[in-house]
């Protein structure tokens, strides 16, 4: 049975009358038009669909909309206007951490989630934090360097 589900996406209230087991991923991409959230596997393995729900990193492909009722969702589209995003973006560019780009939005959300909890991570912590976000192009090391670099250059932001 359809439910009224109300939540906030990137600062804006969204009301969906829909199937509560629908995937948050589809709601974001199809209903909200937020196509920066990618689908790479549809089963929680690749992290391309990563978003933050109430500040926590989740795989939106296995997250039903019933569970976002009353919560705040942050996608790359909401994050990209922030100063923290700018710092991460510059670090990713400088490290060469972007190739095909399909994992990039999810990867940034994983990085943001880490830095919120731990503004000064070490290399192992960065690897751990992005370990649910697969990347087939970069081999990860440039991404790890980028996140470490952002944590230094963005000191005080997180």
């Amino acid at each position: 049975m359809a439910m009224d589900i109300s939540f906030v996406v990137n600062g804006k209230r969204v009301n969906i009358y829909g199937n509560p087991t629908a995937r948050l991923l589809d709601a974001l991409r199809d209903y909200c038009g937020l196509t920066g959230v990618k689908e790479g596997c549809g089963e929680g393995e690749c992290g391309a669909c990563s978003v933050l729900v109430d500040g926590k990193l989740v795989n939106s492909c296995i997250y039903p909309i019933a569970k976002v009722e009353g919560k705040e969702v942050l996608t790359i589209e909401g994050f990209r206007g922030t100063e923290k995003y700018e710092v991460l973006k510059e670090s990713f560019e400088a490290a060469g951490a972007v190739q095909c780009g399909f994992c990039s939005p999810g990867m940034l959300m994983a990085a943001e989630s880490l830095l919120r909890e731990n503004p000064k991570p070490d290399e192992v912590q960065v690897r751990e934090a992005i370990s649910g976000n697969l990347c087939r192009c970069t081999g990860y090391n440039t991404i790890v360097e980028a996140v470490l670099d952002a944590s230094i250059r963005g000191e005080g932001l997180w």
Partner: peptide
């Protein structure tokens, strides 16, 4: 090295893939 020309769009989620 120069900054990749496609990096900004890809990071921001603006790049348009077929899906």
């Amino acid at each position: 090295p120069i900054t990749r020309v496609d990096a900004a769009d890809k990071l921001s989620g603006a790049a348009c893939y077929i899906g």
